[in-house]
Simulated assay, not measured.
Amino acid sequence: MMLDQILELYGLNTNNYHIKSFGTGLINHTWKVSGPENYILQRINPYVFKNPEAIAENMALLAEYLKHTAPNYLFVAPIPTLKGERMAEINHKEYYRLFPFIDNSVTITEITNQQEAFEAAQQFGKFTYLLRDFKLEKLHYTLPQFHDLKLRFDQFKEACSTAGADKLAIAATAINDIYKYQGILFTYMQLIDHQQLPLRVIHHDTKISNVLFDQHHNGLCVIDLDTVMPGYFLSDVGDMLRTYLSPANEEERDFSKIQINEECFYAIYKGYVSAMGTALTPAEKEYFTYSGKYMIYMQVLRFLTDFLNDDIYYHTTYPLQNLVRAQNQLKLLEQFTRSENRFKKFIEYFSFKHDNIVN
């Protein structure tokens, strides 16, 4: 068995271990290896990550930096093979990593209370804060232009120009809505063109399952670091707002279930700001709410573009699924926008209260 061969490269006697699929990730395949010690084995998806070596080098650089600057931080780094290699490579086309399994830790797939949102936001903020002085030029871009909203909009326009008339007709309302919200794109372009936001070490995939909790659901650290690269806080905060605020996820077909939990927004803000502290710039605080619109809008573009391109990126299980996903996210964007003023007032009040306490 292939997986047995992989474990042998790490010096593990396969007779002593049991291998079972693990987790809900959609990109890489993951297994739990149970035995005298427990591990996580993961195969990198080469169709998404074209340069696995870049991921391995990024992780090694971050691990070394944190070992010296934050030795008590739990950074779950890959274990080297018996030959000292960062990955196990098979036939020059398959790449595997082995991680220690953190005992008494848990992951969750959906937010059930505000405290979990706070803990997750604090962990993602802490990760970026601890790496605030890391030299960004050392990091590889593992997914170039991953969260470039201008690129996603251009891809959408290209898809509209090549899609068949039937698809354009079915998606007409969603297409019109994308242009209705085009101000989100203009704001992004202004922020980037005028360099109003600092580049930071950003995780880029802040779904709740990428946070490791203890048995009492206190945050321990962030995991799944393949997408860590230079970026803007918009990506991490925006992805949390997109995926944590509604009990209905992007696969929900009953749009009446798509609601905004405003208390969850407040928890995310408090958690992220408590970890970032004074490292968070005034501009980042000003555009904290905008980050949610930015990420939701980007996901609308990506789903609708894939629908118009005949579903070549996202896996589908029924006809029109990517269109339904886009419509779902448009509903979320509508609901988020309705809450936007209350979010901004909360941030103003929170900042005023905090500044007065400090002074």
Rank of each mutant, 00 (worst) to 15 (best):
E89P: 02
G238L: 09
A159I: 11
E64P: 00
A326N: 11
Y349V: 05
I347C: 03
T289W: 02
A159E: 05
E250Y: 12
N51K: 14
K32R: 14
A88S: 15
K353H: 11
M229E: 11
N28C: 08
K257H: 15
E37C: 06
F153D: 02
Y17C: 05
C264S: 10
P230S: 14
Q122S: 05
V201H: 04
Y266N: 06
I79A: 11
V300L: 04
A172T: 11
L333N: 12
P100D: 03
I111M: 06
Y266I: 05
L139V: 04
V48M: 13
N38F: 02
L62M: 15
G125K: 02
A88R: 02
I27S: 13
L74M: 09
H203M: 05
I55L: 15
P78F: 09
D103L: 09
N176P: 00
K135P: 05
L241C: 13
K331W: 01
E262P: 00
G164R: 09
I268V: 13
Y232F: 14
N58P: 01
I296E: 05
L301D: 08
S209K: 10
K257V: 02
R325F: 01
G35A: 05
Y313S: 09
A121I: 03
T281L: 03
C160I: 14
N51F: 07
Q123P: 04
V106F: 08
R338A: 07
P52Q: 09
N15D: 12
D148A: 06
Q122T: 00
A267Y: 04
K126N: 06
N356R: 09
S21K: 13
Q329R: 12
M295T: 08
R242Q: 14
E119Q: 14
L9G: 14
M1D: 15
M295D: 01
I170T: 14
A77F: 07
S21L: 06
R86K: 15
H92Y: 06
G35C: 04
I223T: 04
I347H: 10
G84K: 13
L74C: 11
R325N: 03
N328E: 09
M2T: 11
D166H: 07
D224P: 02
H147Q: 06
H194F: 08
E53R: 07
N176I: 00
M229N: 13
A163M: 03
F22L: 04
K293R: 15
F336P: 00
I102V: 13
G231A: 12
E119T: 02
V237Q: 06
H203S: 05
S34Q: 14
E8H: 13
T107R: 14
T316C: 07
D310N: 09
E85G: 01
T173E: 10
L9T: 11
N28K: 11
T107Y: 07
I296G: 01
F303T: 02
Y313W: 08
E263M: 08
K93V: 03
F343G: 02
F255S: 09
R302W: 06
R253E: 13
G183T: 08
L9K: 15
I108Q: 06
L131I: 03
D214H: 12
